[in-house]
Design a protein around this nucleic acid. Structure first.
Length: 617
RNA sequence: GCCCCGGUAGCUCAGCGGGUAGAGCGGCGGCCUCGUAAGCCGCAGGCCGCGGGUUCAAAGCCCGCCCGGGGCUCCA
């Protein structure tokens, strides 16, 4: 029985049977909720629990009901399940509610309870819902059917495990892999639960990272000083890593002739998604990837098998895709974005497979350096059936390198220019997925662009080309970093960026204005050690300035007064550990240098004194 | 692109069964000189997204457009 209530109030009086949950004998009152008075019947299973919770979540979404109350209520059925089984199903409901991110309350099972409810007066407020095992079984079988109808080409969804198994996605046990499950759902059913603005959008504004530029086309962003700093550090980091792995950095034009023979075919194969720039005599399109420029260069190069594999790299600022207006979202999906793109020309498939493994490792390193270890990433591998049949070992090798179960999509035939692609996906606060790193095996474009090399027998041959972005679009990386910080906050932690990406790494707060000169002297020592430091010399209370530094997510906050001046020991508020430690300046410097080693450094492009620093909004 | 929600002070938002606009934060000024998450007082600041319509009267109602967000779709 589903009731939309103004409030529900209950008080556990006494356990009714031997099997009951722990409960406090006090009055529990919950305001403004969807109350589910629930009976579990003999044949009910966990699938039903999931279905019931999904329906409840959808209903709550529709009616904007903020919370859910799961209330064991035996009196709705004459065919009750035994208590142990019933409790198991209730637990499955709670688990599902938690997975869905619902704000819910569960009344204890097995108690005699005093109950007061106030049901709202609207037509949808009272509904009897009944779920039976047969119906659930039927609907779960319908999933692949519906997918087949929906997809233009047949695709088959599986989960690949590091142990070498290929399990149909509906048979895979996702417990312990909730993010992968959310990602799989997102991919397959396109089911989306949440309606609010994504958290990273207000964060990017509040932290003065970026904002929309109303005078531009939607999906074009303005970057403030701190955002520009973060973005350029990420750009530098990815570039550094690619070059370490042997990438050759190039720069190519952002616009191309629409009638150029090599580009025409590629361009016309896809729906018009590009910005077009008309001039007196010709039309140009803005590039939507680095492929064009790099391929046109590769076509003109004198290549032999001895040069291969050859990595060509460019970080495009920008690539342009004129996504439909409804598809744009914060920093997640833009019309102008910064894309590191590294191609590998390989002499044959064997070499391509070897290179792809190296690039997968590169991507994992890059993502980890940025702050996404494997817990935050879900991998998808998509391939044609033919490719799978001939390269099973290779595909499972990729899964093993990743080290977690992977979502696999198999196509019955090749539709795109690639036979295999993989990506890393980040699952955000709204349980939506966004692709970050990716790599593809392209078997078509060498031919269409006329890219050739001379092989061992002195013949011209077409290379296989890999297309990899080790991080994905930089804007999207920042979206993911902000969403990750919000996930941390939701779990009760302190949101922050890694030290190397924090615009201010150390903030010094003089207790009184007379210590400002000492603080300015102190920052020079930090600056000599390539640490971004500033001084909050504003005429505000210490408390206020600490609060401001905290809301800016500054990793190290130093309060400087008489004690510090006398002792030379700093009191350092360490955000990551949520505590204060007393340490010498050189120890703090060592700590930060350790945390930021192997990462790029840039100066803070803002006044060092907060009193001189304008707000961008 | 379609559907839904929103756009009011620099920011976040209240006001919206029509009668001419408010708060908090921020800014500026004054007091306070402060030891680990918001000190006190005062002042300034508004073509209520833009255009049209209805009305004696529009921030509010109607139509169109622009921008943002969400859903669908899409994501080479």
């Amino acid at each position: 029985m589903q009731l939309h209530v103004d409030y529900v109030e209950y008080e556990p009086i006494q356990p009714e049977a031997g099997i009951y949950e722990e409960a406090e004998r006090k009055i529990h009152r919950i305001e403004e909720a969807l109350l589910l008075l629930t009976s579990i019947e003999k044949d009910d299973d966990r699938l039903l629990a999931v279905k019931a919770m999904d329906d409840a979540a959808a209903f709550m979404e529709k009616l904007k009901i903020p919370r859910l109350v799961i209330y064991p209520y035996a009196h709705l059925s004459t065919d009750l399940a035994p208590p142990t089984h019933a409790m198991e199903i209730f637990n499955a409901m709670k688990e599902r509610a938690r997975t869905l991110g619902l704000n819910f309350h569960a009344a204890p099972f097995g108690w005699n309870k005093r109950l007061v409810i106030s049901v709202k007066g609207h037509p949808l407020a009272e509904q009897l819902k009944s779920y039976t095992a047969e119906a659930a079984a039927r609907s779960s079988e319908e999933v692949p059917q519906a997918l087949l109808l929906e997809e233009k080409l047949e695709s088959y969804w599986h989960v690949l495990t590091p142990g070498g198994e290929m399990i149909p996605v509906e048979k895979f046990d996702f417990s312990g892999h909730e993010n992968l499950e959310a990602f799989a759902k997102y991919e397959m059913q396109k089911s989306r639960a949440v309606l609010e603005q994504p958290p990273h959008v207000s964060l990017m504004k509040r932290l003065e990272i970026a904002d929309h530029e109303p005078a531009s086309d939607p999906g074009n962003v303005r970057w403030y000083a701190k955002g520009r700093l973060i973005k350029s550090l990420l750009e530098e980091y990815v570039t550094k890593k690619v070059i370490e792995y042997g990438g050759i950095e190039l720069e190519t034009p952002i616009m191309y002739d629409m009638e150029h023979p090599a580009l025409r075919k590629y361009l016309h194969k896809f729906p018009a998604r590009q910005y077009v720039i008309p001039t007196e005599d010709k039309k140009y399109f803005l590039r939507f990837a680095a492929c064009f420029g790099q391929f046109l260069i590769a076509r003109d190069m004198q290549l032999s098998y001895r040069h291969l594999p050859l990595w060509l790299y460019e970080l495009t600022r920008y690539s342009f895709r004129r996504e439909k207006s409804g598809e744009l979202a914060g920093l997640k999906r833009l019309r102008a974005f910064t894309m590191p793109d590294v191609h590998a020309l390989c002499k044959d498939l064997e070499q391509a497979k070897e290179e792809m493994k190296r690039r997968l490792k590169l991507s994992l390193e890059v993502m980890e350096g940025i702050g996404f270890d494997r817990d935050y990433l879900e991998m998808a591998i998509r391939f044609t059936k033919d490719f799978y049949e001939e390269n099973k070992d290779f595909i499972f090798e990729l899964v093993r390198i990743f080290g977690k179960p992977v979502l696999a999509e198999m196509w019955s035939e090749r539709y795109f220019y690639f036979v295999l692609k993989w990506e890393f996906n980040f699952v955000d606060c709204q349980r939506k997925a966004a692709a970050l790193s990716t790599d593809q095996i392209d078997v078509e474009n060498a031919r269409s662009y006329g890219i050739t090399y001379v092989n061992e027998s002195g013949e011209e041959a077409y290379p296989i080309i890999l297309h990899c972005s080790p991080s994905g679009a930089i804007e999207r990386v920042i979206y993911a970093l902000l969403e990750k910080a919000e996930l941390v906050r939701m779990r009760g932690g302190k949101p922050m960026l890694s030290t190397w990406l924090s615009p201010t790494q150390v903030r010094i707060i003089p207790v009184r204005s007379k210590y400002i000169p000492d603080c300015i002297e102190l920052i020079e020592e930090f600056e000599r050690n390539r640490i971004r430091v500033d001084v909050d010399d504003r005429d505000e209370t210490v408390d206020k300035r600490i609060r401001d530094a905290e809301t800016e997510w500054i990793p190290y906050i130093v309060v400087y007064g008489e004690r510090e001046k006398k002792s030379g020991i700093l009191s350092v508020r360490i955000r990551a550990e949520d505590r204060i430690e007393f340490m010498k300046p050189e120890d703090l410097i060592t700590r930060i240098r350790e945390e930021t080693k192997d990462k790029p450094f840039k100066e803070l492009p803002l006044p060092k004194l907060l009193s001189r620093r304008p707000s961008f909004r």
